[in-house]
């Protein structure tokens, strides 16, 4: 699939996008400082492993699909590995050397992050999860 199609697939029919909220999840709320993107990410951690997660909110195609792809990649991973995954994605966003293979589908944003503001859209869910994992 082309990058565009992958992004659209995650944007329009993400398996992780759910409107209902159950209270046995921990909620991470991220709001973009430059635009209206607003995401709520819900995760369940068990013994240092992220065992379940979903999200909702109101955000553009890039922030939404990036959140969906992030969840795809971090489900059933250990917190340390998730932190590494986030750090690798952040390096790509900052034009620093990064490991392409490790990003899996998240590599689809490689070019888009150079389009104006869209880097902050793609990074938004990572920013939220990163902060949460650092603080918890």
């Amino acid at each position: 699939m082309e990058n565009r199609e992958i992004i659209l697939k995650h944007y329009t029919s993400s398996p992780y996008k759910k409107d209902e909220v159950t209270n046995d999840y921990q909620k991470i709320e991220v709001q973009s400082s430059t635009c209206v993107d607003h995401l709520n990410i819900y995760i369940k951690l068990k013994d240092g492993v992220l065992v379940d997660g979903y999200f909702n909110g109101e955000a553009c195609s890039i922030a939404t699909s990036s959140c969906s792809i992030l969840l795809t990649n971090v489900l059933n991973k250990r917190v340390e590995d998730i932190k590494k995954f986030i750090a690798n994605f952040e390096k790509m966003c900052n034009d620093e050397p990064f490991v392409e293979e490790d990003l899996q589908e998240a590599i689809v944003f490689k070019d888009i992050i150079h389009q104006g503001n869209r880097k902050s859209c793609a990074f938004l869910p990572y920013q939220g999860l990163k902060k949460f994992l650092e603080e918890n």
Binding site: C35, D37, C60, S61, I62, T64, Q115, G116
Partner: peptide
């Protein structure tokens, strides 16, 4: 279509509009 996505599309054609609240 989310407003911001439309604004980005228009931006590709050098049309500047505002999206958001």
């Amino acid at each position: 279509i989310f407003s911001q996505d439309v604004a980005y599309y228009l931006n590709k054609y050098k049309v500047c509009v505002r999206a958001g609240n």
